[in-house]
């Protein structure tokens, strides 16, 4: 390994060890890595947004004569009013535009992607079952999925007290949700362990050259 690569790998390894040192307790090495991370990440976002927003979405349209792109720039400059206590209320205008547009766009899109399409997929489970003459196990599974979705949704429905039949269905719904949470937890653990293994492999095989 050449010297520049050795130095770079050593820097990465020392930073890795500095973060791992937090397992003992909060200490100067961890604080160093943590603060370095904050600075470098902020700088990285500056670079990314400069080359993906400022140049293509601000500079180039203005150069091309699209004068109306001056409006978001003025709105953006109004955001800086936040720095002055007396004038910080002015920053509400760009914020209002941002929130208004974002929520306006979100309402139909979320309705389509998260509600209609998901309901469509759930109903499709039953309708395609007849069309494709699915096997016994598939039929059982599809019905179970549909019942699970309805039960879990009833658990989320708080306009009616969870007593009697509603309560029983909601209880089954919690069980279904617990399976989902358990699966998510399992996946999270596996992802974190994979990262840990990768970091240990880096320290042992890439940095220390063991094995």
């Amino acid at each position: 390994m050449d010297w520049p690569t050795t130095i770079a790998t050593t820097v990465a390894a020392l930073l890795t060890l500095a973060v791992f040192s937090f397992l003992y307790k909060d200490n100067p090495f961890y604080k160093f890595a943590e603060h370095l991370m904050v600075g470098v990440s902020a700088g990285y976002w500056v670079i990314i947004l400069w080359y993906t927003v400022v140049i293509p979405k601000m500079w180039q349209p203005l150069e091309a004569g699209k004068w109306y792109y001056i409006i978001p720039i003025i709105l953006g400059i109004l955001m800086w009013a936040r720095l002055n206590r007396k004038w910080q209320w002015v920053s509400r205008y760009p914020l209002a535009f941002y929130i208004g547009v974002s929520t306006g766009v979100a309402i139909p899109l979320e309705m389509k992607a998260k509600v209609i399409e998901q309901l469509n997929g759930s109903v499709d489970l039953v309708t395609t079952m007849y069309a494709t003459q699915a096997s016994g196990m598939t039929v059982v599974n599809n019905i179970l999925i549909l019942i699970g979705i309805i039960a879990a949704l009833i658990y989320f429905f708080f306009s009616k007290a969870h007593t009697g039949a509603t309560g029983s269905i909601a209880k089954f719904g919690i069980g279904v949700l617990m399976v989902g949470f358990g699966a998510s937890f399992g996946f999270t653990v596996m992802a974190r362990i994979s990262l840990l293994i990768e970091r240990l492999q880096f320290l042992l095989f890439e940095w220390l050259k063991w094995g």
Partner: peptide, 17 residues
């Protein structure tokens, strides 16, 4: 593929609403 799918779908619908 079965109970987890039902849970995730219900959560997505709930989050969407």
């Amino acid at each position: 593929n079965v109970p987890n799918l039902a849970a995730k779908r219900a959560i997505i619908i709930g989050v969407g609403l």
